[in-house]
Design a protein around this nucleic acid. Structure first.
Length: 330
DNA sequence: CAACAGGATCCAC
DNA sequence: GTGGATCCTGTTG
């Protein structure tokens, strides 16, 4: 890893270039600016959960795809797993480095590709959050409980200071009606960023509903085809708002390595063996999903152990700490 | 000390 | 009844 995303300096040169009419663009740029400015606010009171700080997860997750850690993005086929760096065309990222003289057309095309990739990732993340939180994509529909879930989630994802209390009792409609200034008043630290995130949601949910042109997401409902093959169809529980099972939730996290790979990841996907890298974080996510603020790994692991009898999850043959195995990976 | 195993109880659906 | 959540005791590495 080491160097932070090359060519992604916060200033105009590395700015996200989204379609000019895109409301998403505005939100993204606001969020990006808030997170990467020279006077970037460091409000995480506790030591960050993950080592590779520097950029907020928001940024990281969208640029992970440009410099993929997980092979899924590289799409080199199912076999090319683990962290073997993609040997071919490692410089897929078309940004910056406009060395090629007269290559402006190519550059534009490349930038368009990057834009659509970023927008696609934003939409995918919104979808994922919808599923994991069991909320609708349109913030206007949110109940006060949904709003709190979203706040918790966003705080957690983008390491914002805790602001949930400042927005208690607010429904989605009220939230959406609030200006950035009002956000700032309620939450001087991070209120503006939160507003920007909400902006993204407000403009982002539409394509999800209307089927506006965009690349299909592996997490679309109903389950679509992707290299994630076996997990997709089974995991897609939360589309209909049914209560999600723990094993489904775990698989959903495993499906998004570029978002949750720091918390939980496959050790051997074919065999269904996975490792919980950050037990506290996984438990916390599960708690958010189930509205159980007191959730911890002790309780979560007890629930996992209930799966032993049911033949859903077991300990792998060589038992290791925090490593479990899905009994029926296919 | 954190992870692990599993019994017991409670609760929502 | 099912699927968890919670609490607990005891074990293990």
């Amino acid at each position: 890893m080491g160097s932070a995303s090359p060519g992604l300096s916060p200033g105009p040169p590395g700015r996200l270039l989204l379609p000019p009419d895109s409301a998403l663009r505005a939100g993204l740029e606001k969020v990006a600016a808030a997170g990467t400015g020279p006077e970037r606010r460091d409000w995480s009171p506790s030591p960050p959960a993950t080592p590779e700080q520097g950029l907020p997860t928001f940024y990281l997750s969208y640029f992970d795809m440009l410099y993929p850690e997980d092979s899924s993005w590289a799409a080199k086929g199912p076999g090319a797993s683990t962290r073997a760096e993609p040997p071919d065309e490692p410089e897929q990222c078309p940004v910056i480095d406009s060395q090629a003289p007269g290559g402006s057309l190519d550059l534009e095309h490349s930038l368009e590709q990057v834009q659509s990739m970023v927008v696609g990732e934003v939409l995918k993340d919104i979808e994922t959050a919808c599923k994991l939180l069991n909320i609708t994509a349109d913030p206007v529909d949110w109940s006060p409980g949904n709003v709190q879930k979203w706040l918790l989630w966003t705080e957690h994802q983008y390491r914002l200071p805790p602001v949930g209390k400042a927005f208690q009792e607010l429904g989605g409609k009220e939230l959406c009606a609030m200006s950035e200034e009002q956000f700032r008043q309620r939450s001087p630290l991070g209120g503006d960023v939160l507003h920007a995130h909400l902006d993204i949601w407000k403009s982002g949910w539409r394509p999800l509903r209307t089927g506006a042109p965009r690349s299909p997401s592996p997490l679309d409902c109903p389950a679509s085809t992707s290299e994630e093959s076996w997990t997709d169809s089974e995991v897609d529980s939360s589309c209909s708002g049914q209560p999600i099972h723990l094993w489904q939730f775990l698989k959903e996290l495993l499906l998004k390595p570029h978002s949750y790979g720091r918390f939980i990841r496959w050790l051997n996907k074919e065999k269904g063996i996975f490792k919980i890298e950050d037990s506290a974080q996984v438990a916390r996510l599960w708690g958010i999903r189930k509205n159980r603020p007191a959730m911890n790994y002790d309780k979560l692991s007890r629930s996992i152990r209930q799966y032993y009898k049911k033949g859903i999850i077991r300990k792998p043959d060589i038992s290791q700490r925090l490593v479990y195995q899905f009994v029926h990976p296919i």
